[in-house]
Design a protein around this nucleic acid. Structure first.
Lengths: 221, 221
DNA sequence: GCTAAAATGGTATCCAGTACCATGGGCTGG
DNA sequence: CCAGCCCATGGTACTGGATACCATTTTAGC
């Protein structure tokens, strides 16, 4: 137990110093000095200063990609909205560490930008997955794929940020709801050319009781 | 005419060198040397090396914010999908310059990340605007605001990238279509609690001819 | 223990970005 | 026309992240 790896010691020292003195006022030398290690060692374990804070982002992205490859869902959107849960689960597992990171990224613009960039990589992965799926099913609508990917990512981030702020006691339930909302947005509408689009789902009422409202809606447009 | 400003000479030298030798192999000294100016002058005109490429992003964001402030549209989503056109118009005005920038951001990860970060600022602006609007109208659905902002930005970027790649002869028409699609996604549905959601818009047909299809949809769920 | 491989450390260097002060040229008021 | 001023430019020096390269120590396998 008295042998934390060099990597761990560096991360620990880094987070401690970031908390004490702020991210920008902490130099790599400060970190390595507190960790009792050499400067070279730092850069061997972390590609950059920012990387101490986001160590396993690449791995997580890979996991999500794998989940997509091996997924067997009815639609691309469902597959993606399922795969994205891996990300939420990862953060929730990290627990307090994730919250400390959030506190840092909220304050330091450089870190926020980095976080945003990595979120964009998920979005890109999702977009390409959905677009590929659509190409398979002879439905070429790249904009639709773009919107789906953006919606899934936005919904996920919404729930994640709520949890990070401590506003969400049950993020799993919330992400379920959020994804249901996203899927609802794109719920395959009955399309008749350029004409009417109708979406109807999860009704408990008789259709007939809704016809008046439907008529009003159609007239209002 | 023989008196381009220092700022212009720097930008010109920078772009030329980026094209010739690549962004990363070009140093600030290279740029200032070719421009026949001092290193200090560079940083007085541009905050950073990346800033030569994205000079007026802040100004544009401000313009969009102003447009939102002074907008008088029926819904927040329409206001936002209108304001975002300023961005597209700006890029299209830039013409070839925008395309050169796109070529750079496509190749250089650091620049791509920066571009993504600035896109995120628009998204944030939109999200806050929509959320504020919803708060006014006593409809507190922050996730919905998040999704709307994400969708508008995604749709805009889709059209913009198509234009940048030379795939879009008429970006204004395309952005119209894209925004119509986004607004359609969120078209205010008749909501009865947890029950049925119905969306119907732009129909040319009589409602009655659609009732059978509607029944089938509702039954299938 | 011994040796090969891997982890660590040191040094030098590059380059972006900041701080500070010097200079020079053009413009205005006198 | 000149004095004084403002402002753009320039130079110099420094910080700190990141890379390259080589020396050294530690560890692991036998």
């Amino acid at each position: 137990m008295s042998k934390p790896t060099a990597r761990e010691r560096l991360a620990e020292a880094a987070f401690a110093l970031f908390d004490e003195a702020g991210y920008e006022h902490t130099t790599i030398d400060d970190i390595t000095e507190r960790a009792g290690l050499g400067r070279t060692t730092f850069f061997r374990h972390y590609r950059s200063k920012e990387d101490v804070i986001f160590p396993d982002h690449d791995r997580l992205l890979e996991q999500v990609a794998n989940r997509l490859q091996t997924s067997s869902h009815a639609t691309a959107l469902v597959a993606v909205s399922d795969a994205v849960r891996l990300v939420l689960a990862h953060y929730v597992d990290e627990g307090d560490l994730a919250r400390r990171r959030y506190a840092l990224t909220s304050r330091v613009p450089a870190l926020r930008d980095r976080e945003i960039a990595s979120v964009a990589r998920y979005q890109r992965l999702f977009r390409e997955f959905i677009a590929g799926w659509m190409a398979d099913t002879a439905e070429p609508a790249p904009l639709r794929a773009e919107l789906m990917a953006a919606a899934v990512v936005a919904a996920h981030n919404h729930v994640l940020r709520r949890w990070l702020r401590g506003d969400s006691p049950d993020p799993n339930r919330e992400v379920d709801e959020a994804m249901r909302m996203v899927i609802g947005l794109f719920a395959s509408p009955a399309q008749d050319g350029n004409g009417t689009t109708i979406v109807a789902f999860r009704t408990g009422q008789e259709i007939d009781t809704l016809i008046p409202a439907l008529r009003r809606l159609a007239d209002a447009t």
